[in-house]
């Protein structure tokens, strides 16, 4: 009986823990390095590869990637020349966050996608 009580208390404590809205992984480091520029092609590939995790393996309360991250990833892919996947991620951003619709449409137009 005592074990059961302890177990339920532990379970309750874990359940009541606040889960963050999004899991950013090393978002700030990657984005900052990307916008700062001056990286080699090898570094660029490494950044994009690590960034993929933020978009494709989302964690957090709603299990969706943080706002703007899909568009960021799409933009990175576009810069690498992968226009098909880039468009896919821009559209994913619109799906996840309808507030981005006007900007994404403008971006798709500007990038001729």
């Amino acid at each position: 009986m005592r074990k059961f009580i302890i177990l339920s208390v532990i379970c309750f404590a874990f359940c009541s823990c606040n889960k963050a809205l999004y899991l950013h992984y090393n978002y700030d480091e990657l984005i900052y390095t990307y916008v700062k520029g001056g990286w080699s092609d090898k570094d660029n590939k490494k950044i994009v590869k690590q960034y993929k995790k933020i978009v494709d393996v989302p964690k957090g309360k709603d299990i969706i990637p943080p706002p703007g991250s899909c568009a960021d990833y799409g933009f990175m892919l576009f810069k690498q020349g992968d226009t098909v996947k880039a468009k896919e991620y821009f559209q994913k951003e619109i799906l996840l966050y309808p507030e981005s619709r006007s900007y994404m449409n403008k971006l798709l137009n500007d990038l001729d996608l």
């Binding site: 963050a20 809205l21 999004y22 950013h24 978002y27 700030d28 984005i31 900052y32 990307y34 916008v35 700062k36 943080p66 706002p67 703007g68 991250s69 568009a71 960021d72 933009f75 990175m76 951003e93 966050y97 507030e99 981005s100 900007y103 971006l107």
Partner: peptide
């Protein structure tokens, strides 16, 4: 790089607050 550092940190902080923030790379 103060502006870039601010832009990155702000986007993260305000998105945690529950708002939609525009993508940093394209804005930059």
């Amino acid at each position: 790089y103060g502006d870039k550092l601010f832009l990155t940190a702000l986007t993260k902080e305000l998105s945690i607050k529950g708002y939609y923030l525009f993508p940093v790379t394209s804005l930059d």
